[in-house]
Simulated assay, not measured.
Amino acid sequence: MLISALLVLHVIVAIVIIVAVLLQQGQGANAGAAFGAGSSGTVFGARGAASFLSRLTAVLAAVFMLNSTALAWIAARDVGEPGSLLERIEPVPQLQEELVPEDEEDENERDEDELDLPPPDSH
């Protein structure tokens, strides 16, 4: 249950961070002021106090990092046995062939030398 709640929070925080970053005005937006269009003191505009969106982005980034750390810690704690999956596989028992000792050979089987063959014809 805890992991599900943290995952939902993680996704929501990620979406809000994306929206907050996209809503912020870029520093290069006031670059036209440097060429006589405004009264800016620097090329990229005066940097005043941090806006609400930049503070919100910083807070959400901190929440995102802490949430990521918590999820990683929970996932690492839930691992039962260290090692790879291959180490957990039980080996398959090997089949052993039953060898018949030479003394117990079937008496009905004979070697070629022991066959009763007539002598060759001498024509």
Rank of each mutant, 00 (worst) to 15 (best):
P118F: 05
D113R: 09
I89M: 15
D113P: 11
P101L: 04
I89L: 13
L99R: 12
L117H: 02
D103N: 09
E81M: 05
V21H: 00
T69P: 10
L99V: 12
R77V: 07
L22K: 08
D78P: 01
S40R: 14
Q94F: 12
L7Y: 13
Q27K: 07
I17K: 03
L6E: 01
F44K: 00
A70S: 03
L85C: 06
T69S: 08
L85T: 02
I17F: 02
G32N: 05
V92G: 08
E102M: 05
V11K: 13
A50E: 01
I15R: 11
L53W: 03
D121N: 14
A20M: 07
A70Q: 00
L71Q: 01
Q27V: 09
W73I: 15
W73L: 15
A29K: 11
W73H: 11
T42K: 04
P120S: 15
P91K: 10
T42N: 15
A75R: 01
S40K: 08
S4H: 14
G26T: 09
G36Q: 02
V11C: 08
I17Y: 00
V100A: 10
L115S: 12
A37L: 12
L60T: 01
S39E: 07
R110M: 15
R110H: 11
L6H: 10
A14S: 11
L71S: 02
G32M: 12
A62H: 03
Q27H: 13
L99H: 04
D106I: 15
V43Q: 14
L115P: 04
A20I: 09
S68Y: 11
E104G: 04
L85G: 10
L66F: 12
F35S: 01
E97S: 09
L23I: 13
Q27N: 14
E90F: 10
G48T: 03
S40Q: 13
E81P: 02
P120L: 13
L7C: 05
P93N: 08
P93Y: 04
A76G: 06
D106P: 08
S68R: 02
A75Q: 09
A37I: 08
P91A: 10
A20D: 01
D103G: 07
R88V: 02
V16M: 14
E97Q: 08
P118Q: 05
A61G: 13
R47H: 14
V100E: 05
S54C: 07
P118M: 09
I89D: 10
A20W: 00
G45W: 00
M65N: 06
A31C: 14
W73P: 10
V100S: 07
W73Y: 06
P82R: 15
F35L: 02
G83L: 00
G83D: 04
Q94P: 13
R110C: 14
G28T: 04
S4Q: 15
G80S: 06
A70P: 00
I15E: 08
A46V: 04
V8D: 15
Q94V: 15
D78Y: 06
S39H: 09
L6D: 02
A58I: 06
F44R: 00
L85N: 14
I74L: 11
L53Q: 01
F35W: 04
D103M: 11
